[in-house]
Each structure stands twice: as C-alpha cells, then as structure tokens.
Design a binder for these strands. Structure first.
Lengths: 262, 262
DNA sequence: ATGCAACCTTGATTTAGATCAAGTCCGTGC
DNA sequence: GCACGGACTTGATCTAAATCAAGGTTGCAT
C-alpha cells in the first residue's frame, strides 16, 4: 500500500492575505458583483442578504500550496471558494494521505461540529475565497432561513458525493478510477468556466500526479501509466494550461462504470 | 478486485410493516416515550415538537434483509432508526457493491436533494424505524429551527465520518481496516446499549462477512483471515450474540492508526 | 542559454490481497 | 439425531497494483 509523504509545506501564510486593501466603499458590494455567486450557497440570498454576507466575510487571495485549514486546529472559520481549486485531505500519522475532495469555485469548505477541524485544506493553484468566522456564519444561518436550508442541501450533496467516492475507492479498478476522475474534472470545468467553452470536452486538471494518486487511492506511477494508456488509445489528449481534452466521453463513461468495453 | 454479488434480496416488503396497528391513543405519545430519543435528531425537540414528530411519522418494524430504500427510486421518505442496524450501499452495474455506512439506533438515513435516492438501504437485523414522508419532514424543518440546525449538524458529522472512511478505503491496509472496524463497532455498541454494559469492551457485529468485506473494500476471505489472526494474537475473542470481545483496545487502536506495533 | 529542481513517464520486480478450492461449523426443520 | 444450507474458515495460487529504479520534460532563476 502507498505511503505518499506530505508535500513540502510551503510557507504557511497565516491567512493574512486579504485582497487589495479592502477599501470599505469597494468591499461593501463585493457579494453583489461576485461572478460565481449564482453557482454557490450565496444564490439563496436577496439583496439585503448579500450585504450581510459581504459584511460577515473577508476575501482572501492565496498562492498555490498555501495551507487554509490544518488538521486538528480549532475550527474557527468557514470558507467559500470563488476562484481556483482547493484540496481537502486527511492523513495518517506515518504520512499516508487521502485527498477526500477538491473544492472548485462555488464550493464551500470548513464546516465542523467539533471544536477542531478533522481534515486539512490547501490551495492547488491561485485561489480566491471568502472567509466567514464561525459566529458570523451562525448569525447568518439564524437570520436567513433560506441560506441555512441551502447549506443543508449543499452538505447533503457533499455527502452523496462522498458515498460515490467510497464506491470508487473500495470497489473500482485503477482504470475505472482514472476514467471517473477525468469525467468528474470535465464536469467541474463545465460548471466553473464562465464563457461557454470554446471547445467543450475539456477537463481542468490543475493538481499534480501526487494529488491525483492520493485522491484515487493509487500511486503516481499507476496514475501516470493509466493516463498514458488512455492517451495511446486516443480516449484523451493533452491540452495547454493543465487541461486534458476528452476525445471519447462515452467510452470513458463505460470504463468508469465498470463495463469492460473500450 | 472484488465482485461481491448482491445478497439474495429476500421478499422486498413494500414497507407496509407498520408496528402493531397504530392505535391513535398509543401512537400519540410515541416520540415522548421513545427510549433512544436523546441519542437522535429528536433530542432537539420540546414537548410540542415531539407531538409534531409523532404526527409526522409512522413507526415500522422490519425483519433482517428487508429493502428500505432502493437505489434510483424516488426519494419519498426520510428515516430515523430506533432499533437494530441498517446498511447503506452503492452498487456498480456488474454487482460490485460498496457499503458506505451502517446506521445503528439513533442514526438517520434517506436524505437527498435529488429526485431519486443515490443509494440503497437494507436492514441487517430486526430493525425498528420512524418514517417521515418528505413534505412532512420539510414542514418540520421550517416549523422547528432547532430541529433543522440539529439535522445540519448531523449531516455535517456524517460527512466527517465519510471522509474518515475514505482515508480507510484509500490508504489503509487490510489489517488496519479490520482493526478500525472493530473499534468503530465497539463505539457504536457503547452509544447504542441502554444498560451500562455488564462488560464494557464488547463490539456488536450483526452483519455478515460479506457486508464487512463490502464495507472495508476487501474480500470475505481477507476479512476472515484477519479476524482469525487477531483472535490468535489474543487481541479479540468471540462472544455470544454476534458480539466480539475486545481484549486489547489500545493495540487495536495502534494498528488502526497505522503504527505497525502489535 | 544554461542548469537545477520538481514533476512526470516508463520499465522491471515484488507483494498484499484477490481468486480458486476445499472443508468446517452451526442452526433449523423434519 | 440427522441432514441440509448458509455462513465462515483455511490453504494454494494468481494478479493488479505497489515498489524500486532509471530516465525524460518542463519551467524557472540566474
């Protein structure tokens, strides 16, 4: 079994990275002009609610490899990703790591009922996110029932996703895992991209092979070999900017769901 | 990789199994006298709320192997388990199955934002549960903010559990998986048991080896061999009534968390 | 433009756990 | 009390993916 060690843990910025000095008169309408608002929790808010959201949060911009949440640290804040991709993970004492999910723009992270976070979170690429301190978040939940209901729905969806991922980790082959991953990254790109993609069938893969392996419960070598095999079979092709072009989504879908077809 | 086939699917009772003809005058205080109320969502309710819960739900009693929820069927109801153990699972078209969790007394199941259930659920042993139809559940959420907040917390906890299980499935060895499972079943038994256990260190294991294997992402043979090895090492011993006695919880804990100690 | 470092790919070999194959145990009905 | 069937155990063998081991790419800093 694998024992992927921690990444080099680059300069844990203490989350001070507030975006361009939040001039009150600019920041007051932040949520109202947010371009991914409609794809996030925030779409449950009316104008007044959006003002409250803006007040309750700070916007942060963080470079790749920044720690957002540290496993075991006090769970003080809740985050909404508005740009880029965040990885969530859990680790064993000896360094083995499981990435439990990637949060792309529009996704939240940081919920916890315990005093401390049971998981870690780190930026994959350049990330922008809104941080809500816990008391503020709780006030919002109480003041805006629609927001609370929306959060309940969002967590319920995350749970369904987690169950899907358990099926993948427990019962799929390496080939099936990688095919599933590529299709998921294509879906994520479709949801995330603003402009109707010049070319649809693209998947955004900003994470390294190590991250993919730790997400799929494989080693980097197996991930690399499997992707190479898909490329050789002309199911996918590389594209610029950490993108992969999906040449045959239907075939990948068959593979992902366990039909041995190819 | 495994290909555990479906269990014999015994006589899918159409969920008519209402407990002893619900005489209105008995059923009206059902929730008030419920002995596991304090261990469930329902502990968020005051007296009035409990009456509302009783009104909004029906109590069912189901024998082992009964289907509660069928993957892909309309998500019409939400359930609270009050007795026994339910297994939740997802399947691949070829029959491979992943059990995503066991719901013991006090746990809920059946939440979904989609029109249909993305998972199946089946009784493991004799199960008693309360069924809430979706419209009734939604009314409760709106009428009792504390209940909604409690549900949000419960789903958040389930998500944390799911992440822990992903770590197990993706990165733990067979030995570590089985040790983790046994400890979890001990915790579950402590939470569930009413009388302070005559002897503490017992784990309740009502499910078959097939279920355990499908939960841990292993085969029944590997589960069996690993349990035998633990027994030989005197870490555990069999007990009556589908119970296992944990002889060295600390050693199991070390194994479960990846220290190679024994 | 060059050299380094991180990341990725490919090949050879090993191994943990799957698969195949008998049994054994245990509870239930006759 | 016996035999049938389902659940479990144990052993022998196989294999998918891990591990070990080189290279090859790429992008950035000098």
């Amino acid at each position: 079994m694998t024992s992927s060690s921690h990444p080099p843990a680059p300069a844990l910025a203490p989350l001070g990275g507030v975006l361009h000095a939040p001039k009150a008169d600019v920041d007051i309408i932040r949520c109202m002009v947010c371009d991914i608002r409609h794809k996030s929790l925030c779409n449950s808010m009316d104008e007044e609610g959006l003002a409250a959201l803006t007040h309750s949060s700070r916007q942060l911009q963080l470079p790749p490899g920044t720690t957002i949440v540290e496993e075991g640290e006090p769970a003080l804040a809740f985050f909404n990703v508005t740009r880029g991709t965040v990885k969530l993970f859990k680790s064993l004492p000896d360094g083995r790591r499981q990435i439990t999910g990637f949060a792309d723009a529009g996704q939240f992270l940081g919920l916890s009922t315990a005093q401390t976070y049971s998981f870690g979170a780190e930026t994959v690429d350049n990330v922008r996110l809104c941080r809500f301190m816990r008391p503020q978040l709780e006030a919002l939940l109480s003041d805006y029932p629609k927001f609370e209901r929306r959060l309940l729905a969002a967590v319920t969806d995350k749970l369904a996703e987690a169950q899907e991922q358990m099926l993948l980790l427990g019962r799929k082959t390496a080939r099936e895992k990688v095919a599933t991953f590529l299709l998921d990254r294509m879906k994520a790109f479709h949801l995330t991209a603003n402009r109707r993609q010049e070319a649809e069938n693209l998947a955004s893969v900003p994470m390294t092979r190590v991250d993919i392996a730790d997400y799929l419960g494989l080693t980097i070598e197996t991930v690399s070999r499997t992707i190479s095999a898909f490329r050789r079979s002309l199911l996918i092709a590389s594209a610029e900017n950490h993108r992969i072009r999906i040449l045959s989504a239907t075939t990948l879908l068959n593979i992902a769901s366990g039909q041995k077809a190819d």
